[in-house]
Design a protein around this nucleic acid. Structure first.
Length: 118
DNA sequence: ATGCTGACGTCGC
DNA sequence: CGCGACGCCAGCA
């Protein structure tokens, strides 16, 4: 009965990730590590990616296609409904993707901690 | 219940 | 300079 504490924490982590991802402006991209670090767990970048996977199970629309690894590579494209959906969504927003990598990633990179300012 | 894997990132050798 | 291993959290076998 009094063990609801751990349950709240894990749920909050996923929820925070989705919230940050939803805050990504149109035509911008970010990295898993940036989100993880923004949440205070820079070493848990892996879990951020897992949160993206859970985004499919979430009733909210999470633009996971705007989240790529630190190299700007579309590592998660294979997890989408269609492998081309991710690259297609990015190109639709004006982001050029070549060889599964975001062009000008450094310029399109959006820092969550810079906007959220916890 | 325990262990492994997984859409990453950083450090070490 | 190149490659490997570890750490983190959660879901699944």
């Amino acid at each position: 009965m009094a063990k609801v504490k751990a349950n709240t924490r894990s749920d909050d982590f996923f929820k925070s990730v989705w919230e940050v991802v939803r805050l990504i402006p149109y035509g911008r991209v970010t990295s898993y590590g940036a989100i993880a670090k923004c949440l205070g767990t820079g070493a848990s970048a892996r879990t951020v990616g897992w949160a993206m996977n859970a985004s499919h199970h979430s009733p909210e629309s999470i633009p996971a296609h705007r989240v790529v690894n630190r190299l700007g590579m579309l590592t998660g494209k294979h997890h989408f409904k269609e492998p081309d959906a991710m690259q297609r969504a990015l190109e639709k927003e004006g982001i050029n993707v070549v060889d599964d990598k975001v062009v000008e990633f450094d310029r399109l990179f959006w820092d969550p901690s810079k906007e959220i300012q916890i």
